[in-house]
Design a protein around this nucleic acid. Structure first.
Lengths: 152, 152
DNA sequence: TTTCTTGCAAATTCTTTGCAGATTA
DNA sequence: TAATCTGCAAAGAATTTGCAAGAAA
């Protein structure tokens, strides 16, 4: 039993509508159209690409609505950023293998050092795409400091 | 036999000098000072923080030198960005577990789907820092398209 | 001396914000 | 009706660039 891409997309949009209602957010044509663009693309589009695509169907949308909507869709976990979690670039000179915990609330970065013998394997399919330089694991979540702050 | 942090830092700076010479880049006091700041910090500083720190020792440095130097240090693999590999935010609505190959040359993003049974384990120490929401694995490298382009 | 780098200033790019009118529940 | 959302325009933040003087090889 085959399920078409259109059907899957419609299901996703239904889910979006449900989630909007659940969170007290309005279901607006802009929100649907913007989500649709991200959901049907495999290209990890940026804000401007989404804007251009949506404009075809909806010539009056504005860039700022796209930015605002992408942010709210992200907040409700309907989409996420491939990269650029942090508002500005942050640098690290520590070349020993370690990974990072990123707090999505306060943007703090914590180093995660692996225990002896522990190792993050590189996905088998990764080298299909080119020559690998390094692997970077980001764990996203809410840090203890923010959790405590929120509970008050 | 203990090795002090200062000794390690000095070794790193020696390595930087060697690398500069190797790549035909000048060893300038700004470059040393900027690298030193990133190398000695555990805070994953942003460009402005580095700038402020360097300004204490070197009141005439400019922000743009810091930006330029951070980029060149990154290019020579002396430092790296914790996040913000891509010049602008890119979005993904695919919630099935998959990871990304980021080409550091053309900024293209490729989806890496895991094979059946394959799984990226969450580092044991990760939940020390807070409540985990998701894990995001970035494989950085040069994609096939760029490799081919470069070989010509 | 030759090439690379810096500081200055200005520009660019990406993203966010204030507000009034329009839209949704 | 009451709250949210949009489009417009303008602002804001982060980062980049052109250029002439300065510094390194």
């Amino acid at each position: 039993m085959e399920v078409s891409k259109e059907q899957i997309l419609e299901e996703k949009i239904d889910y979006l509508k449900t989630m909007c209602k659940l969170k007290g957010m309005r279901v607006t044509p802009q929100r649907i159209a913007i989500f649709k663009e991200v959901a049907k693309s495999c290209e990890h589009p940026d804000a401007e690409t989404v804007y251009e695509a949506v404009k075809h169907k909806m010539p009056n949308v504005s860039v700022d609505t796209v930015y605002r909507t992408l942010s709210s869709l992200e907040e409700m976990d309907m989409i996420f950023r491939v990269d650029n979690q942090l508002p500005k670039a942050r640098f690290d000179a520590d070349k020993t293998p370690h990974h990072h915990f990123l707090c999505t609330q306060c943007n703090e970065v914590y180093d995660i050092f692996l225990e002896p013998g522990e190792e993050i394997p590189i996905p088998k399919n990764a080298d299909k795409f080119g020559r690998i330089k390094d692997i970077n694991v980001q764990i996203r979540g809410i840090c203890n400091k923010c959790l405590e702050k929120n509970s008050k």
